[in-house]
Design a protein around this nucleic acid. Sequence first.
DNA 1: GCGACGTGCAACTCTGGAGTTGCACCCACT
DNA 2: AGTGGGTGCAACTCCAGAGTTGCACGTCGC
Lengths: 134, 134
Amino acid sequence: MTDQPHGAVEAVDTVLAALADPTRRRLLELIAAQGEATATTLARHLPVSRQAVVKHLAVLDAAGLVSSGRVGREVRYTVRPAALDTTARWMASLAADWDRRLAHIKHVAEAAERESRTGRDDASRPPEQPHGGT
Amino acid sequence: MTDQPHGAVEAVDTVLAALADPTRRRLLELIAAQGEATATTLARHLPVSRQAVVKHLAVLDAAGLVSSGRVGREVRYTVRPAALDTTARWMASLAADWDRRLAHIKHVAEAAERESRTGRDDASRPPEQPHGGT
DNA sequence: GCGACGTGCAACTCTGGAGTTGCACCCACT
DNA sequence: AGTGGGTGCAACTCCAGAGTTGCACGTCGC
């Protein structure tokens, strides 16, 4: 196990899928708080069976969010910031990209507005409110 | 519609759930690229029906990732960076928190290591490799 | 060796969400 | 008025994934 995807894109993919589940987020919380934890221990703090926890840990491991290490008869899990950080950066740059696009569109719209206003005086146009949305 | 959750926590919750689906991410991509788009238009660029797109847009809207605006007989959707940005920050701070905890644990472990080494010389101990994990 | 504890594997149930189809409604255009 | 394109609503199918149970195997402690 612990074969995280090669491409950064798929990494983000699996990380997002992994983080989508509340139980898995809770698991990460618990592991991070304790520094180290086993499936059995974690299951005690959750309303699900050990097997369910094991499956979740497998998903988290595949996403590179945790790493497993065997110590004697037990398997200890630790949190792994790298993948999470990568995803955070991806998301932040995406948000920035959206911002840029929106600013650009707004600029273009305003330019067109000025253009039409100076060119000819047609105040009789359908409302076309840009986006009241919320 | 477009009633985004009040608490920031639930916001992150819904955003993560929304971003978990590849089709929805593709939708956001398309909307961001075009600046504005309708469900019908978007469906033409995707291998799914318009209704499927509508449902996805409803989810994205509930997560605050898009905003809808009616223009004549069509409903146009635009991208909304705010929620995405919030989630990105949440994720980044979480990663930073993990980093802090790991550094702390490592520090403590090293201190304990030095302690036991100077206190008594017991080289006959089980391996206990910290975490080869991957 | 023996019991206790933790893990691993497999088969099973069941619900949520992704997707579809069909139809009714609204608005623009001529 | 009537037609076409876009939206909205509802009922339906289908399957991945979350969770369970049961049992076998390895490992620690005595």
